[in-house]
Simulated scan of single mutants.
Amino acid sequence: MANYTSEASESPDESRRRAENYAPHLNATVWFLTAISAIFLGLRVFVKVWRKRRVRCDDCILVLGWIALAVSTAMITLCTTFGLGRHGRYIRPEDLSNLLMTSYFAGFASTLAVIWSKTSFAVTLLNISEGTTRKVVWFVLISANVVLGLNATLQFVQCWPPSRAWHPGAPGKCWLGIERVRAYNIFVAAYSGATDIVLALLPWKIIGHMKIRKKEKYGALFAMSMGVFAGITSFLKITSLGAIGNVDLITMVNLFIFGTAEGATTIIAASVPILRALLHRQEAPP
């Protein structure tokens, strides 16, 4: 709710809090992350076309992941026009519902970006794995989609009618309390990070036994292990999940930054191995 106290009668500390606005910082950060991931994805597709390689299922899924990330970033920018980046008490009441509704859609799109980019890398691994390793990849792929997919869905079914979530005073009921929602999001972030690390380590088993030059082998392993950074980003996101249910909406800034970083890092991590493989092979099967 907005504070209508006269600005002339405010204390210096109150005036400072009223003037705080992290919207420019938020917009610059999320668009930078989205642009960097777009560059890596664009290079991946360009190099494939340049080397006359087929665009496969994993490429298409990754493109969908980036589109979801871009939609999320655009929705975050829309949120800033409703006051996101400022302390909650200084956001106009007529803007609050629009901000909350837009933030739910931004979070939904952000989760889709993570799901699809993670799926893309898993599909890539399925193309080069076999036996037990292939079963592990399938388990990670299916379980990550279920866990993250449920998290995305819960944003719109935790209250009935769904609009009750962004109209706190409207008639309706929320069957999940804030503490449960926050706890599940912590679990999701931890599980997502763990799956990133598992997918990043599996290439050591797949490529480790191949009879290729050590320099080429370690270069490929390093490139395919970039997912570790996506996992670290997901774990760091846990520190910002206290924003869920927090009445001071300025805390959502870090949550959106880490959410965008998670999707962008996963897209980059999924693009680097393909870029390296294509640029370091003079001849490769179509």
Rank of each mutant, 00 (worst) to 15 (best):
S15A: 10
R18H: 08
R18V: 01
Y22H: 09
I36G: 02
F40G: 04
L41H: 03
G42E: 02
R44I: 02
V45R: 00
F46W: 12
W50E: 13
W50I: 12
R51W: 09
R54Y: 06
D58K: 02
C60I: 12
I61E: 09
I61N: 08
V71E: 13
A74F: 13
T77L: 07
L78Y: 04
L78D: 07
F82P: 15
L84A: 10
G85R: 08
R86G: 11
H87L: 03
H87S: 06
Y90G: 05
P93G: 06
P93V: 02
E94Q: 11
S97R: 07
N98S: 15
N98G: 07
L100C: 11
F105M: 13
A106G: 08
G107K: 05
L112Q: 15
A113P: 03
V114I: 10
I115V: 05
T119N: 02
V123F: 03
T124Q: 05
L126E: 09
I128H: 11
G131V: 02
R134V: 13
V136P: 03
W138D: 04
V140P: 00
L148D: 15
A152P: 09
A152K: 06
T153N: 15
F156I: 06
V157N: 08
C159L: 15
W160T: 09
W160Y: 14
P162S: 14
S163P: 06
A170M: 14
P171L: 15
G172A: 11
G172V: 06
L176Y: 07
G177A: 13
G177C: 12
E179F: 01
V181P: 04
V181L: 10
V188S: 10
A189Q: 14
Y191L: 10
S192Q: 15
G193D: 06
T195P: 11
I197C: 00
V198W: 00
L201D: 14
L202N: 04
W204F: 07
I206S: 03
I206E: 05
H209Y: 12
I212R: 11
L221A: 09
G227V: 00
G231T: 08
T239Q: 14
L241T: 01
A243T: 04
N246P: 04
N246R: 02
L255A: 13
T260Y: 01
G263I: 01
A264V: 00
T265P: 03
I267V: 06
I268A: 01
A270T: 00
S271K: 02
P273F: 00
